[in-house]
Amino acid sequence: MTQHVRFYQTGSFAVGNRLLPAEARTVQSDPTRANSLTSGHRACRGCGEALGARYVLDAAMRATGGRLVTVNATGCLEVFSTPYPESSWRVPWLHSLFGNAPAVASGVAAALKARGRTDIRVLGQGGDGGTVDIGFGALSGMFERGDDVLFVCYDNQGYMNTGVQRSGATPPAARTSTTQAVGPAPGNVFGQGKSAPLIAMAHEIPYVATATIADLHDLESKVERAMGLHGARYLHVLVPCPLGWGSDAAQTVRIARLAVQSGLFPVFEAERGAVSAVSPIRHRVLVEEYLRPQARFRHLFEPERRADVIDGLQAIADRNIRRFGLLPGEQT
């Protein structure tokens, strides 16, 4: 694929964009940005999670006036940012275990409340493994108690840190190292997996939102919105992983955008259990356009095209579009 390199992508909201008027810039383009996750860390080239975490945390720092404490689950983000004796974190940061980040965040919030330090806000973060699988009990507990925590899931749809194994957030048909592209039904099983945002909504917490690193302004505004509220809040951010998805490191943002435009990843907000806003799809694409650049779906196109499987994924996207009304004005 030919790529036209533009150093100043006005209108794209890309990192380092300084040609936009100051009020239209992202937090990252602001010379006074917090740099909460600063440079020098060991994330892979093109890491969606590193990008997502930078924007989430700097936006949260801006929204809280720098009065922020973070709790991190075990996973890529923790590993690549804190190889002793180095740390990329310029915010107070605590890592305990893989499956307990929401509970640890609850503990931090309880401590701050007991100490009368409610000026300090709490943000928990983890990957999809730490959030929707092993940490899910703790997350649900944090939700139902209404603890004053924003929990952010950086969803790259698998256990990338341990070598790309399937998680409860891995999409159907995707090849992982525990759902290999072999046998009569290659890749991950259809009909499995869970939507953490919908389950979060079922707790009727004040705020649930999804976002991707393809629309950083949207991501920032959702973080800001969430930090303006109290109680348990949840933000689920799609962050493509070039290593696990088998995609070009330069295509991370584009692939996240295709996930949204295909309807496979609905972007929405919900308040107290009800969807309150959706990001409509502006240029709809078929799922095939999203699947093709990713080696984890290569078995759908080689050695022969698996129309049945691609149709199955298209049906999931179509259902999302209908369910969330992602194409307003269009009768679906």
Binding site: S106, G107, A110, L112, S140, G141
Partner: peptide, 25 residues
């Protein structure tokens, strides 16, 4: 000046204690 947290498991109980202690409580 004390928060009593009813948690969903012992794993969470110790995890809440970890977060609370690290936050100075």
């Amino acid at each position: 000046a004390c928060e009593f947290v009813n948690v969903e498991s012992e794993f969470a109980a110790m995890s809440v204690a970890i977060g609370a202690s690290a936050a100075g409580a």
